[in-house]
Design a protein around this nucleic acid. Structure first.
Lengths: 166, 166
DNA sequence: GGATGTTAGACCATCTTTGACCAATGACAT
DNA sequence: ATGTCATTGGTCAAAGATGGTCTAACATCC
């Protein structure tokens, strides 16, 4: 079996047991699999992306860590469809607005969250001299990032939220 | 847990009890945590700056002390305004994170809003091939746009509250 | 054999902790 | 008043502890 697949399985097994969130040490994991630490990054970059339904958060320095959050299974299918099919690599403001509207109507996002997302991807927020394709790509990334946050937020404790904010 | 985080928590706990202003002895605190006195300075320098909403005053020599004040704001609108001013045309992720954390700690933004803003301006959300200056400018615009939204929302609820009182 | 996916490693960025050395203050002796 | 010195806090740089990025070499799959 490929190393990357083994690491992927290992992490996913950890997540099954332990709710929707795990914390790991890059060097320890690399040590365990006797591979280069950057191998861990490779696995995360190719198999634990927002498109796969995961959010990653990390910190360097003493006491550093890598945390992986997984979205809840209930909404995950719907959300992943939204992320991959409806947003994709780019999205214009109009489509994004419609999408946000829908999420609000379906009570996946609160009114407050919907308004905040809207303001983050509005033309005003992205009013810089950039090619339209770049703006579309940016909007897609930002929107995906925020949607994953909403999907994961219920798993994070307040304490962890503080960390996430640092 | 990291020593610095423990010290930070310790101080913040003191502040809550003690009306947003405390006095401490550097050496005593260092003794308590069994660390180098300069560790205290490190914590203050990285977590209790004006950017975090704190001001520090100290004196050396016999009877020396360190006083920490939490900056008060008349109301949330003022703070939002101040922060908006502080952002300027560009802001890096670290500074933005500090701002958002401050809003959360002062209950101007909810946890959900804080996390959402954080994810919108995170480096992951802006991970496209753009020069760093452009990313900083984008982050500033996005953040301001979101802060405006929150200011708006808060203002509306204030209006509603006023209305209800009439 | 070319496109795509893996792996390792060199080099980088960030955060924390400690310690040597510096500066200010106040008590006290002269 | 002035000098001395113990008492405190401040600065800065080095070392340590992590994780990130980039790229070349290698492997695998059509």
């Amino acid at each position: 079996m490929r190393l990357s697949d083994a690491i992927e399985q290992f992490i996913k097994t950890m997540m099954v047991e332990d709710a929707h969130q795990i914390e790991l040490k890059r060097n320890e994991l690399a040590e365990y699999f006797r591979c280069a630490p950057s191998q861990i990054n490779y696995v995360l970059a190719t198999r634990f992306t927002p498109e796969h339904g995961y959010v990653i958060e990390s910190r360097r320095g003493g006491g550093g860590y890598i945390r992986i959050f997984r979205i809840e299974h209930d909404n995950s299918r719907q959300l992943l469809y939204t992320l991959n099919e409806r947003i994709g690599d780019t999205i214009d403001e109009h489509a994004a607005t419609n999408l946000i509207e829908q999420l609000y109507e379906r009570e996946i996002a609160t009114r407050s969250e919907a308004l905040l997302m809207q303001s983050a991807i509005s033309h005003q927020a992205l009013s810089l001299p950039l090619p339209a394709e770049m703006k579309g790509a940016l909007r897609a990334k930002i929107l995906k990032s925020m949607l994953m946050q909403i999907a994961c937020k219920n798993h994070q404790s307040t304490e962890e939220a503080n960390h996430a904010l640092r």
